[in-house]
Deep mutational scan, measured.
Amino acid sequence: SDEEKKVRDQAKRLGVNTEQLLKWARRQGDEDLVRIVERLLRS
Score class of each variant (00 low, 15 high):
K23N: 11
E19I: 11
K12V: 09
D9C: 04
Q20W: 12
N17H: 07
D2V: 09
K5N: 06
R42A: 12
V16T: 04
D32Y: 13
L41I: 08
A11G: 05
Q10H: 09
S1R: 12
L21W: 04
L41N: 01
Q10T: 12
R39W: 11
T18L: 15
R26F: 10
K5T: 06
R35G: 03
S43W: 10
L22W: 04
I36S: 02
Q10F: 15
Q28T: 11
E4C: 14
E3H: 10
K5G: 06
Q20G: 09
L33P: 00
W24T: 02
D32P: 01
A11F: 11
W24P: 01
L21N: 00
L41Q: 02
E19C: 15
N17M: 07
K23A: 14
S1A: 07
K6V: 08
V7D: 03
Q20A: 11
R26N: 04
K23S: 13
D2Y: 09
D30F: 15
W24G: 01
V37M: 05
D30V: 11
N17I: 13
A11W: 13
A11I: 14
L41E: 00
S43E: 12
E19D: 09
R8F: 13
R27K: 14
R13Y: 08
R26T: 07
A25M: 06
E38T: 06
K23F: 08
R8W: 14
R13N: 03
Q10R: 08
L40V: 05
V34P: 00
E19M: 13
W24N: 01
D9Y: 08
R39H: 08
E31G: 06
G29E: 03
L33I: 04
R42W: 10
A25L: 14
S43D: 11
R35Q: 07
E19W: 13
L14P: 02
V16P: 02
Q10N: 05
A25H: 01
G29C: 15
D9H: 04
V34S: 01
E31N: 10
V7E: 04
E31A: 11
K12T: 11
I36Y: 08
L40M: 11
V7P: 04
R42F: 11
R42G: 11
V16H: 10
T18I: 15
D2P: 09
L33W: 03
E3V: 13
S43R: 13
K12E: 12
I36K: 05
E4H: 09
E4F: 13
Q20K: 09
D32H: 10
V34A: 05
Q10I: 15
K6F: 13
K6L: 13
E38V: 06
D9T: 05
E31S: 12
R35V: 05
D32R: 13
S43M: 14
E38Q: 04
D9S: 04
A11P: 04
Q10S: 05
D9A: 09
E3C: 13
N17E: 04
Q10E: 11
L21K: 00
A25S: 01
S1D: 12
R27M: 15
D2F: 10
L40Y: 13
V16N: 06
V16A: 05
N17D: 08
V34T: 02
I36L: 13
K6S: 07
E38P: 00
Q28F: 11
R27E: 15
K5F: 08
L40I: 12
E31P: 11
L33D: 00
Q20H: 04
R13M: 07
S1F: 11
E38Y: 03
L33G: 00
E31I: 12
L21Y: 01
D30K: 07
G15F: 10
R39T: 06
D9E: 11
R35A: 10
Q28M: 13
D30G: 13
K23H: 11
K6T: 07
K5E: 08
D9V: 03
V7L: 08
G29N: 09
S43T: 13
D2K: 09
R35C: 02
S43L: 12
R35F: 04
V7T: 03
S1M: 10
R35Y: 03
Q20D: 11
N17G: 04
E38D: 02
N17R: 05
E31M: 14
R26S: 06
R8A: 10
Q20C: 15
A25T: 02
R27V: 13
Q20M: 07
K5P: 03
D2N: 08
L41T: 02
L21C: 08
Q10L: 15
V34E: 03
V37S: 00
G15C: 03
K12W: 09
I36M: 12
V37K: 00
R26A: 08
A11V: 10
L21S: 00
I36P: 00
G15Q: 07
Q20T: 06
D9Q: 06
S1K: 10
D32G: 06
G15V: 06
G29P: 02
E31F: 11
V34N: 01
E3G: 10
L14E: 03
R27S: 15
R13L: 12
K5H: 06
R27L: 15
D32I: 14
Q10P: 05
G29W: 08
R42V: 09
S43I: 13
N17S: 13
V34D: 01
R26G: 02
E38K: 11
L40G: 00
Q20S: 05
Q10M: 15
S1V: 10
R27F: 11
A25V: 08
R8K: 07
E31W: 15
E4R: 08
R8I: 12
L40R: 01
T18Y: 15
N17T: 14
E3N: 13
A11N: 04
L41G: 01
G29Q: 06
E19R: 13
L14Q: 03
E38I: 10
D2H: 10
Q28P: 01
K5A: 10
V37I: 15
V7W: 09
I36D: 01
I36V: 05
D30A: 11
L14W: 09
E19Y: 13
V34H: 01
D32Q: 08
L21Q: 00
R35K: 11
K12P: 02
R26I: 14
N17V: 11
W24E: 02
V7Y: 06
R26P: 01
